[in-house]
């Protein structure tokens, strides 16, 4: 599927929804892709099912503070530089790139890489949403090593990280990203087409496009966007309500998040609990269900 400008707008809205606020404002990323389309380049989105099992897929992403990104706009070459560095290190060419998360800028960075290098972009990602840390990607959860990782900045600096595990990889890469000015661009979790099929959350780019489309149509016809979404994503409404006293709190390196005033303290974000993973797998099921509609 070749991405159109209209689908791109829908994608950035849908990705912002799936990212639930994570990964920053999708605006800059959308403009970067649009710039590619305006130059006559194209973005080819491929289903994970269509990948050869032995094809090399290298996901690409931005890492760091979205607050920095909206000020220090990328040169557009950073993630390409990281991907090419990783190709040189592995001695193999990538057959496709892929998002690591859906949300903010990271649903669009791989589209820029794909357009500029002529690589297809896999319709899948490693979260189904936007998560704070690299070791939380489904790729890692299902046993794919994230290392080696290449991280680059706009000035042409690049670091290659080979860590003992994915958590350590995240820790080291983040330190480099800070030295690079708070936002940097990575290529990691290089894996086979077979591993993509086994570990990635499938069809999330097209899901984001369809969510954006549902919201756009609801707005155009003055319908309630929430009702339109519930119609499109059945069995996803768990509860409705508002926060009564939102506050921002500093939780280690994680993003500022609303906390309830009932004594939540600023402890380090703990690894996802079993219960959380259960609820995530339910989300995956419902995402699949909605894709089959």
């Amino acid at each position: 599927m070749k991405l159109t400008s209209e689908q791109l707008i829908d994608l950035s809205v849908g990705a912002a929804f799936l990212g639930t606020g994570g990964g920053g404002d999708p605006y800059v990323g959308r403009l970067m892709v649009q710039q590619c389309l305006d130059e006559g380049l194209s973005v080819e989105i491929v289903s994970p099912e269509d990948l050869d099992d032995d094809m090399l897929v290298i996901p690409t992403a931005m890492m760091g503070a979205p607050t920095v990104l909206v000020e220090k706009i990328p040169s557009g070459e950073e993630a390409i530089f990281s991907l090419q560095r990783l190709e040189r290190h592995l001695g193999r060419k990538a057959g496709a790139t892929m998002p690591i998360e859906i949300g903010g800028i990271n649903s669009t960075i791989p589209l820029v890489v794909g357009a500029r290098l002529g690589l297809p972009v896999v319709d899948a990602d490693g979260m189904g949403r936007a998560f704070p840390f690299l070791e939380m990607e489904t790729f890692g959860v299902y046993g794919v090593p994230g290392s080696p990782l290449a991280v680059s900045d706009e000035d042409g600096d690049c670091a290659l990280i080979e860590a003992i595990d994915n958590r350590q990889m995240e820790w080291l890469a983040r330190a480099v990203a800070i030295r690079m000015g708070g936002s940097a661009y990575i290529a990691e979790y290089a894996m086979s087409g077979a591993d993509v099929k086994r570990t990635a959350v499938p069809n999330t780019l097209t899901l984001a496009i369809r969510i954006g489309e549902v919201l756009r149509r609801a707005r155009q016809s003055h319908e309630n966007p929430i009702e339109a979404l519930i119609g499109f994503l059945p069995n996803t409404l768990i509860a409705m309500g508002g926060s009564s006293s939102p506050a921002r709190s500093w939780m280690c390196c994680a993003r500022p998040r609303p906390v309830l005033r009932s004594g939540a303290s600023g402890s380090r974000a703990s690894p996802p609990s079993r219960r959380r993973w259960k609820s995530r797998s339910r989300t995956r099921t419902s995402l699949r269900a909605s894709m089959e509609r």
């Binding site: 800059v28 970067m32 710039q35 706009i73 990328p74 040169s75 557009g76 070459e77 706009e154 000035d155």
Partner: peptide
């Protein structure tokens, strides 16, 4: 000011 950052989106892009 500040090339090469920001090169992806020149002034008045959108």
């Amino acid at each position: 000011l500040r090339l090469p950052a920001t090169k992806a989106l020149p002034p008045m892009t959108d």
